[in-house]
């Protein structure tokens, strides 16, 4: 079981102001799906750390299988999404293969995940940080998704 632990911003975020953006009432939630529980929770921790102080958006890792092995668990994904859902949508970032396919299958079936859950086409680590910074600033799901996808453009040479 990958616990969200200290990286989730476990406390509910402060109530949004009257002009709060987003489709709902709170911040966009972020779910990080990796084949590895360690990778998912470490990236969540990194994203929270780099998002700076203040009230960070809710984030939950969904890493590995329920048995603690390498792989993907639909149940862990659904639980993480429910945990971070504040009514403003949930942005899901996944590493590859079964992580991506499981999220897509769950979204396509329209069950098990909160309304306005979206798989974001983004690099896992950089995208998670971009999503976290944007969501923590109170941006709506579209903007969070765009910021995470834009992380593909960040060149390193």
């Amino acid at each position: 079981m990958s616990e969200a632990g200290g990286t989730t911003g476990g406390q509910r975020p402060p109530a949004p102001g009257p002009d709060a953006p987003g489709e709902g009432t709170g911040q966009v939630g972020i779910v990080l799906v990796s084949h590895s529980a360690t990778v998912a929770s470490a990236v969540a921790e990194l994203a929270v750390g780099l998002a700076g102080g203040g009230a960070t958006a809710p984030v939950a890792p969904a890493g590995g299988t329920e048995g603690g092995g390498m792989g993907t668990s639909a149940e862990l994904i659904a639980a993480a999404a429910a945990q971070v859902d504040r009514g403003a949508g949930v942005a899901v970032l996944a590493d590859l293969g079964s992580a991506v396919l499981t999220v897509k299958a769950l979204i396509a079936e329209g069950e098990d995940l909160p309304e306005h859950t979206r798989l974001i086409d983004a690099p896992f680590v950089e995208g998670a940080i971009a999503a976290m910074v944007t969501a923590s600033a109170g941006a709506p799901l579209d903007a969070v998704a765009a910021a995470a996808t834009e992380a593909y453009d960040y060149r390193k040479e």
Binding site: G69, G71, S73, A74, E75, G97, S98, L101, A105, L106
Partner: peptide
């Protein structure tokens, strides 16, 4: 299958 397989064949066969 989607919820128990744990690999890509889960969502694929499940779908």
């Amino acid at each position: 299958l989607v919820s128990t397989v744990g690999g890509a064949s889960g969502p694929l066969y499940g779908t």
